[in-house]
């Protein structure tokens, strides 16, 4: 992509990668944010992401419509979410453990049904071209923006508004912060959590669709490199605030683009180490921002409790 631009290719590729690589992070972290606001953790979004990516690709290939693929990916996420939502709310069942099981199950489903779709190429989502016609092809390629990215940009403030100003947002926050208060309000904790987890998984499924239909735009068994899991750390970093999730997703997308963009200008040494940048970044952020002396600002009160 960056040939002919020399070293300028690196920042350009990172900007482009920020938008491309940030899109799945954005959807998964918003989904995880909604889930955790209701007081449950869903580690299984990694499996949901893979299933979403496979479903989107398969449906897009079979029907020829990438938009149907995106819808199907969301619905597939919804189904996995309903399993997690139901099971993690059973008596004495730990939501983190269910999440690990759902990673195995979700990736199993994705690889099982996705096997026939590894070879054929499915219609991709159309992209919007921001750059004018008189720029070099490299810049043009970098500035192609997916409608999914714009959709994610719109959902973040919408979710913030949902939490702050709507009755349903209040229910979710009440269930996540103080289940007793929610019960006193006459809200069904089970239903609210179920719906939050399902909606969050729907978003994660769409995040998967952005992997297989936008960037990198293929379906392979290695398509996700832990984005679904990093999203959990990302939400902690973002203090359960949808708008900060947006900025954090962009940061992570940029970190992910570091390895490939350095490779594109001929730095091959340590390619794999640069690819580990997002994980190291996540770990460092968690080490710096967590503290044993105080609970984090914004953490839902019931998160990680047995109720």
């Amino acid at each position: 992509m960056a040939e002919g631009l020399g070293w300028w290719g690196v920042p350009l590729a990172i900007v482009a990668g920020t938008m491309r690589g940030g899109t799945p992070f954005l959807f998964v972290s918003l989904g995880e944010c909604l889930t955790e606001k209701s007081g449950k953790i869903n580690l299984g979004l990694e499996g949901t992401l893979l299933t979403g990516a496979m479903t989107a690709y398969g449906v897009s290939y079979l029907t020829g419509s990438p938009w149907l693929g995106i819808l199907a990916a969301g619905l597939a996420g919804l189904v996995l979410g309903s399993i997690h939502g139901w099971l993690s709310q059973q008596f004495r069942v730990n939501d983190v453990a269910v999440g690990i099981a759902m990673i195995i199950f979700g990736s199993g489903i994705a690889f099982f049904f996705g096997k026939p779709f590894i070879q054929p190429s499915a219609p991709q989502l159309p992209t919007l071209n921001l750059a004018g016609s008189n720029v070099s092809p490299a810049v043009e390629a970098a500035l192609q923006i997916s409608p999914l990215f714009l959709l994610g940009l719109a959902i973040a403030p919408l979710m913030k508004w949902f939490f702050q100003s709507t009755r349903w947002g209040l229910y979710v926050r009440a269930v996540g912060d103080s289940p007793d208060a929610a019960r006193a309000m006459g809200v069904s904790i089970f239903k609210v959590r179920m719906l939050s987890i399902m909606a969050g998984s729907f978003l994660a499924g769409i995040g998967g669709a952005s992997l297989s239909l936008y960037y990198p735009g293929v379906w392979t068994e290695r398509i996700s490199s832990g984005q679904g899991l990093m999203a959990v750390a990302l939400v902690i970093f973002a203090r359960w605030n949808p708008m900060i999730c947006l900025w954090a997703s962009l940061l992570f997308g940029g970190a992910q683009a570091l390895g490939p963009s350095l490779q594109s200008v001929g730095i091959k040494q340590g390619y794999y180490l640069f690819n580990a940048a997002p994980y190291v970044l996540t770990l460092l952020i968690m080490i710096v921002t967590c503290s044993p002396k105080r609970t984090l600002a914004g953490v839902p009160g019931a998160l990680g409790m047995d109720n």
């Binding site: 490199s225 832990g226 750390a233 794999y272 180490l273 580990a276 996540t282 968690m286 967590c290």
Partner: peptide, 27 residues
Amino acid sequence: YRAVNETISSLLLNYIAIALLNHLVGG
């Protein structure tokens, strides 16, 4: 000592270890 969630940190350490393996084995 830092109250970092052990599930997530151990998971991230997985990815870091695999990156290190790929780096050493490939280089």
